[in-house]
Design a protein around this nucleic acid. Structure first.
Length: 334
DNA sequence: AATGGCTGATGGCCAAAGAT
DNA sequence: ATCTTTGGCCATCAGCCATT
């Protein structure tokens, strides 16, 4: 959960001494817990300080830790998703999930085929996320963390842009039925409004609608398997639920939408995180590596290999002053 | 302990070639 | 004609190192 001052050392010790079994247990720790943990660790290492032997126990550090833990209850959705340690979910993908889906409740309930429509999320990553939230143990951990008082400052509605991307074809594409390609799934999604309609129409009508007979036969075989059918129905229900949450289409596009920037070196007036946040608030993406697709690189002091690469690829290189000007132009100046 | 940078491995995306 | 595979490129992830 990104708690200041709580590193691997302490966490390992807390687990070793049976004081913490799940992440949520951290929120039940007190100053006394940490002092006891430290005493046990010192005893094990034979490194009990003289002052402690004399009966003086330092507690300031433990007080700081407890305060840090308390402070970490006020989290953000991207940070929380990242902290869950889901395979293939780093900072960037966590942010994608948060901006597109809006809330933890939605993220938890979004089936893999639907996750696949988000940018930079394909088969592997979508499966990994859905599998994580399907595991009972993980469900419990997440619930326990929420019960411990974790809140998110930035939850909201899912992106209305999802409306265009979702449909029955999304589920059919994910099923990977042989011979059933994007043309056929798009056709079926246009013709039938739900899984029930699709099934009751039947193979014969699919062919009449224009689906190649081999593809139709494969799809019929796929749907005839009760496991597949149930999954299709469940996923469709979850997708419909998600569509229900979508707000009316958004107002205007953000000014820097579609642009990718890279920041390298040290900035004088802006911290890197701050600069990133401001650019993202304008719709830009801030990436970690330079390619031809990069809009521009903002280089501060002591820029290294990224600057070289930008020059090599002919990507525009700008200064910190340019960055400030760009932010000011769109009303996001510091 | 935290921050930032670097890098190898891997997933995602796109377009063109190949297969049915 | 549509589906499937392939290959190239890009971005992220995850682990490591140096610095402070």
């Amino acid at each position: 959960m990104d708690i200041d001052g709580l590193g691997d050392r302490f966490v390992d010790a807390l687990v070793e001494f049976d004081m913490v079994h799940t992440p949520a247990d951290l929120y039940g720790l007190t100053v006394e817990s940490f002092v006891r943990m430290k005493a046990l660790a010192d005893e094990r290492d034979g490194s009990t300080p003289e002052t402690v032997k004399q009966g003086k126990v330092a507690t300031k550090w433990a007080e700081n830790l407890v305060a840090s833990i308390e402070a970490s209850k006020k989290s953000t959705l991207p940070r929380f998703l990242f902290a869950l340690g889901i395979m293939h979910i780093g900072e960037s993908t966590a942010k994608t999930l948060a901006t597109w889906l809006g809330s933890l409740a939605v993220v938890r309930r979004t089936p893999a085929p639907v996750l696949r429509v988000l940018p930079d999320i394909g088969d592997e990553v979508a499966t990994s996320i859905a599998a994580f939230f399907e595991q009972e143990g993980n469900e419990k951990v997440v619930d326990a963390l929420l019960a411990a008082g974790i809140t998110f400052a930035d939850e909201g509605a899912p992106s209305p842009k999802l409306r265009d991307r979702l449909g029955l074809d999304v589920l059919l594409d994910a099923a990977k039925v042989p011979k059933l390609g994007p043309k056929s799934t798009a056709l079926l999604a246009k013709t039938y409004a739900s899984v029930q309609e699709l099934v009751s129409a039947g193979e014969h009508n699919w062919i009449i609608a224009g689906v190649p007979s081999a593809a139709a036969a494969n799809l019929w075989a796929y749907i005839s398997d009760p496991t597949n059918y149930r999954k299709l129905v469940n996923d469709y229900a979850d997708m419909a639920w998600l569509l229900d949450q979508l707000p009316a289409a958004s107002a205007t596009a953000l000014p820097l939408e579609g642009h990718t920037y890279v920041i390298t070196g040290t900035m004088e007036t802006l911290k890197r995180d701050d600069a990133t946040e401001r650019l993202e608030s304008l719709g830009a993406k801030v990436a970690g590596s330079v390619s031809k697709k990069t809009t521009a690189v903002f280089a501060g002091e002591a820029a290294g290999s990224k600057l070289d690469k930008a020059k090599e690829l002919g990507v525009p290189v700008h200064t910190e002053a340019d960055l400030l000007a760009l932010l000011a132009e769109h009303g996001a100046a510091p």
